[in-house]
Simulated scan of single mutants.
Amino acid sequence: MITAPITLSLARDLLRGALDLERTEYGVLPHRLPARARAQCADGQLAMAESQPSGVRLVFRTRATTIELDTLRTKTAYEGAPPRPDGVYDLLVDGTLAGQASVTGGNVLKVDMTTGSSETVPGPVGTVRFSGLPDRVKHVEIWLPHNEVTQLVALRTDTPVEPAPEQGRKVWLHHGSSISHGSEAASPSTTWPALAASLGGVELINLGFSGSALLDPFTARALRDTPADLISVKIGINLVNLDLMRLRAFGPAVHGFLDTIREGHPTVPLLVVSPILCPIHEDTPGPGAPDFENIGEGRIRFTAMGDPAERAAGKLTLNVIRDELARIVKQRAADDANLHYLDGRDLYGHADFAELPLPDQLHPDAASHRLIGERFAASAFGPAGPFTPRS
């Protein structure tokens, strides 16, 4: 076997979907926000979310029949709850899923949701292994777990690897919340953005950050400064369930966020997506809070703690946000023909909730991720979609 330690140079050659790379004691840690952005916010939730490599994948060509990847993961464990499933690595060969595996060992981030405290228990490097692959030159992608911080340590193969040539596909840059990050998706290549990118034939850069789609200026600047052919921003649910701002601040913040993106991408198709259906917050403001009644059975449900009457004082709900986003996009589109709006309920709405309810009242399950991905692809990349070139 040929062993290649993961250096910054090798990672730059093979990794796609990351905006920054950090050299660590063990290897390389991919980041989905640049260092300047990370330095402007000390929030632990954002730090964990942006360093979980949703949409990040190793891409190369090889005729290897056996591939091994050494990584050091950091897995999250919640006090009082059963262990969470291991993160999944998806192996794609010439665009087709050819294997799935997980690693053992690694660090464990223990979180007490009742107090907000946490501690990290260190663990050893683990190895993910794929064997029995076809003995021919092939395009290989290893999608890293979307829900585990992953330090890349070494790549081993039984024949040499080389960087895969660019395929000339358009780059789709997307920003959103935990739903875009991939919460409750079955695997990294089956989060709804990954599915939509595959159906749309585009290269994905996923800036979906669990709990952290908050109209932060540093995120807008990251979007501004990242080369892209297509951009979408999914706005709303985190602002409600964190009870972060009032209507007076929301409108100007959206304008500022879009203004910043347009500084770097003045004519790129830009799609603003409002929240999917989430009944607990449709007309009830946040904050949202976990219900620990069934945590011992491995089930956490979320509930809205606000009072619908507080909307009169400017508190945000999903319906308030949808109305305001639609108004803002309509206003701006008069001078920006490449700005578009999509109601998130067209991706997941009332009929879908009846058939595929949100298991924790907040996040869609694996089947709903597929549904949302297919509908987004049809809407955005379809014949009349905003991401489809006009003749």
Rank of each mutant, 00 (worst) to 15 (best):
H174W: 10
V59I: 05
T74K: 06
G95D: 14
S117H: 14
R129Y: 09
T115Y: 05
A98Q: 10
S54I: 03
L152E: 00
P83F: 11
T62S: 15
E79K: 14
T120D: 08
F130G: 03
S102E: 02
W172L: 01
N107V: 04
R63Y: 04
V128R: 05
L152F: 11
V161S: 03
T65K: 08
P83N: 13
L72I: 08
R169P: 02
L58V: 04
V93P: 03
G99N: 07
R63N: 09
L69G: 04
D70A: 15
D86L: 01
G123L: 09
L109T: 10
R73E: 08
V125G: 04
P165H: 15
P145I: 00
V103Y: 06
K138G: 07
D90K: 05
A64M: 12
L92R: 15
P165W: 14
P122R: 10
K110R: 13
V161T: 09
A64P: 01
V108E: 02
S178L: 00
L69F: 13
P82W: 06
G123K: 03
Y89V: 06
S54N: 09
G99I: 01
S102A: 06
K75R: 14
I142H: 03
Y89G: 04
T96S: 13
E141A: 12
D94W: 11
M113T: 08
S131E: 12
R63E: 13
G168R: 15
V93A: 12
T115I: 03
